[in-house]
Write a protein that binds this DNA or RNA. Structure first.
Lengths: 122, 122
DNA sequence: TCAAGTACCGACAAAAATGTAAGCCACCCA
DNA sequence: TGGGTGGCTTACATTTTTGTCGGTACTTGA
């Protein structure tokens, strides 16, 4: 970090925020509607509880999702998208369109990939 | 892949294509101007040769950069951005703007991060 | 009393991504 | 004959990310 490079285009922070295996998927789920922990678990069946909570916490720290505890019985925790998250979502639309338009050129070509990242159905 | 989910928004492929530690940076460099191997090495000083060639090859496989060998002496290899890559670049602009606008909310908050991904100056 | 549901935490292990260092081959120049 | 450049390749090590599995605390229902 000695010399500040003139090429700070903002992509770094942005990519960091969504580049978890499940983050985009989770962002999209809470974008559709607020959801509670167990609900998200059901919506994204292949995620483990550890990963679910971990990614949610990071997204919370990054300000794109909001976590609210309702002191009821049984306890209820709801995750919802923030304004900040909605803007991110919108910024992702062109990228999604790009991926959709040219689907098939990249996907399925590399056999050894596509297992760790991009679970499926993005 | 048993049941096709209705939520194929294209983000998966797109994220897979740019989510390497150096890919966005490299895409941006070849976007500015075609460059040869050693040139890229100089432009992105912290990348190792192995990573450089690896990421370039993957980007080539994904169709976003083009590799051309000039049978000269000394041998010359030039990497340039493709049409496909330019479109990707454009699709990334809103995302970059998002990251730039809200810089500081995410960056620098998590001490243990920012080392593996997003080298610097994105 | 036992099972089940909700929302987690944490140790450990596997897998994936990245880094380090060395070597290769063809050529040029001295 | 030896060193330097260009564009790689390969083996191996380290770091980062993700997964597995078990446990916690509380409460309701059978």
């Amino acid at each position: 970090m000695g010399k500040k490079q003139p090429d700070s285009c903002g992509l770094g922070p942005a990519l960091e925020v969504i580049s978890g295996k499940w983050k985009a998927l989770l962002l999209w789920q809470v974008h559709k509607a607020p959801a509670r922990f167990g609900e998200l678990k059901r919506l994204v069946p292949d995620i483990s509880e550890k990963m679910l909570i971990q990614q949610l916490r990071e997204m919370e720290a990054d300000g794109i999702v909001h976590r609210e505890v309702f002191p009821e019985v049984p306890p209820r925790v709801e995750y919802s998208i923030t304004e900040f998250g909605i803007e991110l979502d919108n910024a992702l639309i062109p990228l999604a369109r790009w991926g959709k338009q040219h689907a098939g050129r990249t996907d399925g070509q590399r056999p050894g990939k596509a297992s760790a990242l991009a679970p499926r159905g993005l």
